[in-house]
């Protein structure tokens, strides 16, 4: 017999609401929340490297971009086979992740941040320089990705795909956190020296997590390209990498639901402020500052504090363990 706590219950209710949203909401909101779900997937991907592994990558927009161009480039040549695009995305992100990860992981701390940023900027300028594929202006996508019968042409279709991907990813992360792999990563963030002294070659596990993180971020990019019917280098800029970090930190580093909570809060507040004032960036900056002061436990940490206050309800199966 295990208990279901507010820190699990509230995100699950949120997921339930997101499951029915496209059936109830106007197209505009479906598109907006599709974007939230896609960024939640990307943030989940970054959460593996940053939240669990403590690898502060300021270059994950590179993988988002690689995912987008894995759709846009084949589409440019009339290839809309989603499986082929997927294979291209996995290969590109996996390979680039492996090479840049292997090099970046030779360093740590600020140097790691700078090297990941440098690789992402190289990718950004490479794409900008490819004038035949739109360069600075980006590349419109005429035909959406097709997976058997499913075509990611409408916001609803992308929403559905993003929701299912996020759900699967979240369920997996809940297991991963306490699996030998996840525990090794989390142990490495706490005390890297000790991990080695119990026989685990930490860099190998960190590299594997980095590559996994890169590939998953690429999948988010594929969905984003389909949602926007467009791939642009601006999605590869360092600002996007920074936003992903803010989402992970805002939601709660290393937590299961943090990336969803962070992406929702970040994009939701941005959307609200944009409607209120032209100077939304300034207010947004203050909010990010507040988040930094919140500490690394973020929104998930706030929910976990509720657990102590609210008497736990009994449920036979669902439990996530400690926050």
């Amino acid at each position: 017999m295990t208990t279901i706590r507010p820190s699990t219950l509230i995100p699950l209710l949120l997921l339930a609401a997101l499951a029915v949203l496209p059936f109830a909401a106007e197209s505009y909101y479906t598109a907006f929340f599709a974007r939230v779900l896609i960024y939640a997937v990307a943030a989940s991907a970054l959460n593996l490297a940053l939240g669990m592994g403590g690898m502060v990558s300021l270059g994950h927009a590179l993988f988002l971009g690689l995912g987008m161009y894995s759709v846009a480039l084949p589409a440019h040549f009339g290839i809309d086979d989603g499986w082929l695009q997927l294979a291209l995305c996995v290969a590109a992100c996996g390979l680039v992740g492996l090479v840049t990860g292997a090099i970046s992981l030779r360093t740590s701390g600020i140097a790691f941040i700078m090297i990941t940023l440098a690789f992402a900027q190289m990718g950004y300028f490479l794409v900008v320089s490819l004038k035949q594929f739109g360069g600075d202006d980006g590349l419109p996508i005429a035909g959406a990705s097709r997976f058997f019968g499913l075509e990611l042409a409408s916001a609803e279709a992308v929403y559905g795909a993003a929701f299912c991907l996020l759900l699967a990813l979240t369920a997996w992360v809940a297991r991963l956190r306490v699996s030998p792999f996840g525990m090794t990563l989390r142990a490495g963030r706490q005390n890297a020296r000790r991990v080695a002294s119990v026989g685990l070659a930490l860099p190998r596990y960190q590299l594997a997590a980095y590559v996994l993180s890169a590939v998953l971020c690429g999948l988010a990019g594929m969905l984003l390209a389909n949602l926007n019917a467009y791939a642009s280098p601006s999605s590869m800029s360092w600002m996007v990498s920074g936003e992903l970090i803010v989402m992970v930190v805002l939601g709660g580093m290393g937590s299961v639901f943090g990336p969803l909570l962070g992406a929702l809060a970040f994009l939701g507040i941005e959307e609200l402020l944009k409607g209120l004032t032209e100077h939304w960036m300034a207010i947004f900056g203050l909010l990010i500052l507040a988040v930094a002061l919140l500490g690394k436990s973020g929104i998930a940490g706030l929910l976990a504090r509720l657990d102590a206050r609210v008497p736990a309800r009994r449920s036979p199966r669902l439990a996530e363990g400690r926050a």
Binding site: R175, L176, P180, F181, Y205
Partner: peptide, 10 residues
């Protein structure tokens, strides 16, 4: 053993 196990808990 190695820790490349991604599903079952430690």
């Amino acid at each position: 053993r190695h820790a490349f196990a991604f599903w079952r808990g430690l």
